[in-house]
Design a protein around this nucleic acid. Structure first.
Length: 454
DNA sequence: TCTGGGGTCCTAGGACCC
DNA sequence: TCTGGGGTCCTAGGACCC
């Protein structure tokens, strides 16, 4: 089993595409007042910035000149796709765990020499190919006899690591580690284990199955009991089906007004419905998530008699659930989700229906019971400077491609450079400059500036 | 300037059915 | 006339992962 974990992935893609940020601290995540860090580059980690930390805290810790960027998920996706394709050349059994992580079953097709020397060479070549194909993004590789050991291995020598755990060495590697290194042991479980005197995997392995089930529940307890003994027969599953589709948003300020919140629901439902339709899914259960001013979080859901992918239906149900839940004290977050998914099935009996416009129209008996608005409201028109966000790809008709460094006071600051250029110059422009446009991510294999801005 | 956004899995109680 | 047992579905919440 091989596990790959790309190093500080989002930040690495930013440093690849933005030459002026190479070697400098970069933090990717929410850039608003309530944002949190998704990824900190190793330079930023040296100052104490960490994933899941509030961006405000990361700003306090990092020196001025640190780049705080919103995410460019299309760019991360494109690079991730390149890496996953390389993994699929190794084996048909590849399980992406996220954009930057995947498991590979090297034994799937008998094509590899699985000796320690053999898999070490596979890991070495893979890392080199990834760096070459991605324009320098590095990854850490772990290889072992199970998913557990492969994942543990990839974590042991970050960044740019390669660790092979030979068969038979599992417990020697595992038992000295803190229990928090096991997948599934988060803060709550770690605290409970600590209270019974368990901090290392070795100490966990000394506990009985009955003790662990009493502590963590049936499934989780049995899982801990097995993992502590390096007993792990989990298979690599190449295609885990999607179970739900959702969209949520934390507001810059708590919101109370039902009309305002209703429009937020409409736009979130529109996104969810669109994603369902493009993936040809529909779902029966609509869930509204809300987080109050005091961070208490709750969900309310309703299951329909038939599956829907219609934004107005989703919105109408979510709006009613919100009315029932109330907005007292203000809400900091709303989310809209659909689960209980099935492949859209209305056309099954008459397959040609799928080709007809309107085949995916909402089911009349569902729509009739709800107070559906005509159209989900489009996002409100933003003031000029709000169109820009730090890290965003842009193109200026005269100055060429670049990216947004900052914004404010009706102006936007852009650095004009691309993945293949030297660090480029900075210009401050009017936020409503008609020559400045949002752009697609640059291609790291081909993109420089087309017009010399100097 | 406390605490994102996308998910998965598990548990538990009540309704309901046979 | 002292009240089963198993199974499924729905709802809600919580832990966890990246």
């Amino acid at each position: 089993m091989l596990h790959l974990d790309l190093d500080a992935f989002f930040a690495a893609v930013e440093q690849r595409d933005k030459p002026s940020l190479r070697g400098r601290p970069v933090v990717v995540g929410g850039v608003g007042g309530r944002g949190v860090v998704a990824t900190a580059s190793y330079e930023a980690r040296a100052f104490g910035a960490r994933s899941a930390m509030s961006t405000a805290e990361a700003r306090r810790r990092c020196p001025s000149g640190t780049a705080f960027l919103g995410g460019r998920f299309a760019a991360y996706r494109a690079t991730s796709d390149v890496v996953m394709a390389l993994l699929r050349e190794l084996s048909p059994l590849v399980e992406p765990a996220s954009l930057d992580e995947a498991y590979v079953d090297l034994a799937a097709d008998g094509a590899h020499d699985l000796s320690v020397e053999g898999v070490t060479e596979i890991g070495r070549r893979l890392k080199a190919r990834i760096a070459e194909a991605t324009g320098g993004v590095t990854g850490s590789v772990g290889i072992g006899t199970s998913k557990l050991m492969a994942k543990i291995g990839s974590d042991l020598q970050k960044p740019d690591g390669l660790v092979v755990v030979p068969p038979g060495a599992e417990l020697d590697v595992l038992h000295p580690l803190p229990v928090t290194r096991l997948g599934g042991v988060g803060p709550a479980t770690a605290e409970r284990l600590h209270q019974i005197g368990v901090t290392t995997v070795g100490e966990l392995a000394a506990r009985s199955l009955a003790d662990l089930v009493a502590l963590a529940g049936k499934a989780h307890g049995a899982g801990l009991h097995a993992l502590a003994r390096a007993e792990d027969d989990r298979a690599v599953v190449a295609d885990r089906g999607v179970k739900s589709v959702s969209h949520e948003e934390t507001f810059e300020r708590d919101l109370t007004d039902l009309d305002v919140l209703g429009r937020e629901i409409d736009s979130m439902a529109a996104r969810v419905g669109e994603r369902l339709r493009t993936s040809a899914f529909s779902g029966r259960t609509v869930t509204l998530k809300l987080r109050r001013y005091d961070f208490t979080t709750l969900t309310r859901s309703q299951t329909l008699p038939q599956a829907t992918d219609d934004s107005r239906t989703i919105a109408a149900i979510a709006r009613r659930l919100l009315t029932e839940a109330g907005t007292q004290g203000g809400l900091r977050l709303l989310g809209v989700g659909v689960s209980g998914l099935s492949v859209y099935a209305q056309g099954d009996l008459f397959a040609e229906d799928l080709l007809l416009p309107g085949a995916a129209e909402p089911l009349p008996d569902v729509v009739s019971v709800v107070d559906a608005p005509e159209e989900p409201a489009p996002a409100a028109e933003l003031p000029a400077e709000r169109r820009w966000w730090p890290g965003q790809d842009v193109r200026h008709e005269e100055l060429g491609p670049g990216w947004v460094w900052g914004r404010g006071l009706g102006r936007v600051t852009v650095r004009f450079e691309g993945p293949l250029t030297p660090p480029g110059p900075v210009r401050t422009l009017a936020a409503d400059d008609p020559l400045l446009q949002a752009a697609d991510p640059p291609d790291w294999r081909t993109t420089g500036v087309l017009i010399d801005p100097v």
